[in-house]
């Protein structure tokens, strides 16, 4: 599912993470791994960031980095 198809307020499960091992480990340190459930909060176009909730935190990633996470809507 693309970032555009993932609407604000929707929940999704992480099914795959692309990118370097350093990037995947960086996401792990932020609590994001395969199987994690996330809720999209906001992704205003002016910021080029996507903010989502994961394990009680609100985390923002750059849209380019967020697109490296494959998600399935739940």
């Amino acid at each position: 599912m693309t970032n555009t198809a993932f609407k604000e307020g929707e929940k999704a499960i992480v099914i795959e993470i692309h990118g370097t091992m350093e990037f995947r480990n960086f996401l792990l340190a932020n609590g994001i791994s395969i199987g994690t459930v996330i809720t999209k909060n906001y992704s205003p176009s002016f910021s080029k960031l996507t903010n989502f909730s994961v394990a009680g935190k609100m985390i923002s990633l750059r849209n380019t980095d967020f697109s490296a996470i494959d998600l399935a809507k739940i």
Binding site: E22, F23, F26, N30, L49, N51, K57, M58, I59, S60, L61, R62, D65
Partner: peptide, 10 residues
């Protein structure tokens, strides 16, 4: 270092 994230506190 291209890795970047920002946590928004409540």
């Amino acid at each position: 270092n291209p890795l970047w994230s920002l946590e928004l506190p409540i």
